[in-house]
């Protein structure tokens, strides 16, 4: 195992974050704070409690998930796409590093950035709503697992993308709608029965539900189902990446 390669990629990617602090961290935190102001304070004050929690507090896990999912995918996708775009990927391919080390370096860096953003948003939410976290360890575990799994997914998007438009396609047209329709701002119990069944095919429902359970002890789907969904998604992403590196698809001629 070439640990040095993992460290080198991780440090290099994190340095990029610090170089672009406004874009990497301040921007997502600011936009999420606006969500708090609009949905939590302005509109939320006119909505009754949901599952025994004030609406402002109820949307906190969903808001964190929204940002973390989009950031994880974007960070990891850009991380591997940029070397492809400017040609520096030759270095990765000619280094004594397997796909495990290369993937680990980029995914860990992307997941770290998302995790930091998620935690900053959580800290910010305490300024807007009264919030108690019933299961803080599980909350952290769900957050970390989500960051990792969606960074893996983003890594695949970055390899797949052949231009900047494609790079933005999945986060904008797939991930964001799934998060909005995945119970980020409502409980799926509020939907008509037919749409409740349809929503269960949305994988984000399981993430948001499990994450919200860690906060309030109530969930739309069983917690174990949420955990299983994350694990299955993570394993599937790892399998796809292994296949990509074995075949060299879109990275090696």
């Amino acid at each position: 195992m070439n640990i040095g390669a993992i460290r080198a990629i991780y440090v290099f990617e994190m340095a990029r974050t610090f170089r672009t602090l406004l874009q990497s961290i301040v921007s997502p935190v600011l936009s999420t704070s606006l969500y708090f102001v609009v949905f939590g304070a302005a509109i939320g004050s006119r909505i009754d409690q949901v599952e025994g929690v004030s609406y402002g507090a109820f949307i906190v896990p969903g808001l964190i998930m929204l940002t973390v999912l989009v950031q994880s995918v974007n960070n990891a996708a850009f991380g591997i796409y940029f070397p492809k775009f400017i040609g520096t990927i030759y270095e990765l391919l000619s280094a004594p590093a397997s796909f495990v080390e290369i993937t680990a370096g980029y995914v860990l860096a992307a997941a770290t950035k998302s995790l930091v953003i998620g935690l900053i948003i959580l800290a910010t939410s305490f300024f807007f709503v009264d919030l108690t976290i019933l299961h803080p360890v599980w909350m952290l575990a769900f957050l970390v697992l989500t960051c990792l799994s969606f960074s893996l997914f983003g890594f695949i998007i970055g390899i797949w993308a052949q231009n900047f438009e494609q790079l933005q396609l999945v986060p904008l047209l797939v991930v964001t709608p799934l998060v909005f329709l995945g119970g980020s701002f409502y409980s799926i119990a509020m939907l008509p029965p037919f749409w409740q069944t349809v929503t269960l095919f949305n994988p984000v429902v399981y993430l948001v539900s499990g994450f919200r359970w860690a906060f309030f002890g109530a969930s739309d789907v069983p917690v174990l189902a949420s955990l299983a969904a994350i694990v299955v998604f993570t394993v599937a992403c790892i399998a796809v990446i292994a296949l990509i590196f074995r075949t060299g698809w879109r990275i090696r001629k």
């Binding site: 070439n2 040095g4 390669a5 080198a8 990629i9 290099f12 990765l92 004594p96």
Partner: peptide, 13 residues
């Protein structure tokens, strides 16, 4: 930094 990165990729301390 870029030269240090290359060394790191090859496992060099």
């Amino acid at each position: 930094n870029t030269v240090r990165f290359s060394r790191g990729l090859f496992g060099g301390g």
